[in-house]
Amino acid sequence: MPSAPPEAQARLSYRDAVREAIRCALRGDPRTFLMGEDVGRYGGSYAVSKGLLEEFGDERIRDTPLSESAFVGAGIGAALAGLRPIVEVMTVNFSLLALDQIVNNAATLSHMSGGQLNVPVVIRLATGAGRQLAAQHSHSLEGWYAHIPGLRIAVPATIDDARYMLAAALESPDPVLLFEHLYLYNMEGSLTPGIERVDLEHAAIRRPGRDVTLITYGWSLYKCLEAATTLASEGIQAEVLDLRTLRPLDDATIVSSVRRTRHAVIVDEGWRSGSLSAEVTTRLVEQAFYELDAPVARVCTAEVPVPYAKHLEETALPSAARIASAVREMLTRGGSA
């Protein structure tokens, strides 16, 4: 085991971890550059890229005009030509203006060219609700993107993943979308000693438990962990599974956890209809139906455009209380708690 780097002992924010990931990538590979709206002089809309312009110059830290389609497409083109662009789309909400490039080009070019082309672009997007930003700035559309073959979708929820997922994404010859929940940027923690790289293949068990599996990702991970703590005081041992990647989904880890706990609650900040939570549910039905002791339950965002007022937004989003209730209801009805 290599000795832990000095930074591993220090406290750092999720934001610092992403910044350090970008800095390491830029230092380590001259093919890498960062571009997006206000990533340079402004320092990044969420201050992720603060200081990088001074360190790397404006050729590699590139401020773009407000032209999501043009600069995401330019990232795809530069990737086709052998570079390793990191494209920051300020938020997932604005990525809708670049959908043509992401869905029609990034996702298709390898297959449509019979394997002649690869698109090793990394697109970083802030996602999610919780900051009273109202409907147009609070989307969680990562599940939507996970629908698309040809894309890889990763969601760093921990400090370790914020620090190391970018390197894994840049190593991938395929287009990778990295969704950073805006609520997590200020979260502080420390890096796990000994971890220096992560993969984009596997889900992770963040808290072991025997009674129910809470399947989640992103900010909702912390709501699940909070719910698990509450439930533990009531004698219910909840396992918390962080999906980490939404495409591909790690069926093996999901199914093996649920086979042990025989109960699954899926917690997703996306809406429930036609959603990632529906996909996970279906896979459990397909692969673990006879091992379930109760129907799968879901805790998702209410089917409304996310509202502004604090009490309305909180009501709309998944919460630790709702998650805990869903678990209690499931175990009570199932009679196996």
């Binding site: 550059f33 050729e59 389609s69 043009a70 600069f71 995401v72 497409g73 330019a74 990232g75 795809i76 083109g77 530069a78 990737a79 086709l80 030509a81 052998g82 570079l83 662009p85 043509d100 490039q101 029609n104 080009n105 070019l109 449509m112 060219s113 082309l117």
Partner: peptide, 23 residues
């Protein structure tokens, strides 16, 4: 590089190929 069937969809990609040439 194709053969792009979305009208104007190839233009941003061309900008990216050119950006790589410039860099």
């Amino acid at each position: 590089y194709g053969g792009n069937a979305i009208v104007a969809g190839g233009l941003p990609i061309a900008a990216g190929l050119a950006l790589a040439q410039q860099l």
